[in-house]
Design a protein around this nucleic acid. Structure first.
Lengths: 206, 206
DNA sequence: GACAACATACCAACTGGTTGGTAATGCTAA
DNA sequence: TTAGCATTACCAACCAGTTGGTATGTTGTC
């Protein structure tokens, strides 16, 4: 799985092309030919590295998830001591990612692909869920720690709230795409932050 | 626009087929041929009623939006006197719609299509936004009335909250599709209800 | 010279869309 | 009322282009 190679091989170029093109045009509308062209690679190379287009899609979800994990691991908010500060910092970081980039750049590959393929390709669907769930679980760690510290008796479920952060972000992307306006995504994520603040603020008062 | 005909014409059968198939397989993966087959109509009929596949898509968004408007207009929650009860009732009604139906049945045509076509077809993108915005504005009316009555001095924006309800619902569908589990969507919508309650509960205390 | 990493040329199946035609319906004027 | 005509609604066959995928050839490296 974890293939560490120094030179940018055709495989990696194809994965990068997939991440870009699928977010722009969707999965079905992204042809193998356009993938190859974008990666500067021939069709022979494509089918040398991937048995099928669907196999590339699954590899791309792993590629995407690993890249995302690195991005968030390096972010500033991890340095905060209080897990609640980390959690709010995470949301602010997501706001930051949205600002100053175009829609295809900042939206999520997994959310885009799973909308298209959840019925027709269980393998792709599961691969997408794995990536989303992995990231939600990372957020869930912060939530669990913050809850233990600030709201140990609150009734809401930790795992669900982690998934909810991702649901809001995915939904924010859908609406932002519809309006063709990234700032709408930011507006939605601000509501998420207020929700988290209310959840903990409310708990503190108990 | 509003074509009132007694018999189910080929046009209406094609629109119904589009609503079903696009939610199942996505827009690109839904071929004109499969649309015709599902509607029990020939290809000639298709291109008699619609200049192109994209034109059908746009007509389908209007068809969808009108149907949805009727569904929600008939719902019980409209009878409540207090607009806040209406608003919570609306969220509960959405929960009800999710329960006891399969994913392709309960998910949103507009959110599904716009994810795929927002970059490649501005016309479809705008048509989807119009439908979403229309529905969000309906919810916004309840929010505005509830705010005027229960939280006139609260800082949050009415229009944004209306859109936020839709963002959560769209995101809930994305995650539910990924997990292949409708109940996950319900879990997410429950968070939305708690947020609204906190927003108004918090305001009342001021 | 063996093997991975590519490139080239190609294919059958399917794509959205067009064709020329026909059956049914509505409109109009005598 | 109805003959005459125009329009709408629909059909089956077909088209050129594109699709994912393959078969075979070439190259560089150990």
């Amino acid at each position: 799985m974890t293939q560490t190679q120094t030179r940018p091989t055709a495989r990696e170029k194809l994965l990068a092309a997939a991440v870009q093109l699928v977010r722009e045009k969707g999965y079905d509308a992204t042809s193998v030919d356009s993938l190859c062209e974008n990666a500067g690679v021939t069709k022979g190379a494509f089918f040398h590295h991937f048995k099928s287009k669907d196999e590339l899609a699954i590899a791309a979800t792993q590629f995407w998830t690993e890249n995302a994990a690195q991005l968030f691991a390096k972010a500033e908010y991890n340095k905060f001591e209080d897990p609640l500060d980390q959690l709010i910092g995470y949301v602010d970081f997501r706001l930051q990612l949205v600002h100053g980039s175009t829609l295809p750049e900042c939206t999520c590959l997994l959310g885009t692909m799973v909308q298209e393929k959840f019925e027709t390709s269980p393998a792709i669907r599961d691969a997408c869920y794995e990536g989303i769930h992995f990231h939600a679980a990372e957020v869930g760690k912060m939530i669990a720690a913050a809850k233990a510290l600030h709201a140990p008796h609150a009734s809401w479920n930790v795992e669900n709230l982690g998934l909810y952060t991702q649901a809001v972000i995915q939904g924010a992307f859908v609406l932002a795409k519809a309006k063709n306006d990234v700032t709408l995504a930011a507006d939605m994520i601000l509501h998420l932050r207020r929700y988290i603040e209310l959840l903990f603020h409310h708990a503190k008062e108990d």
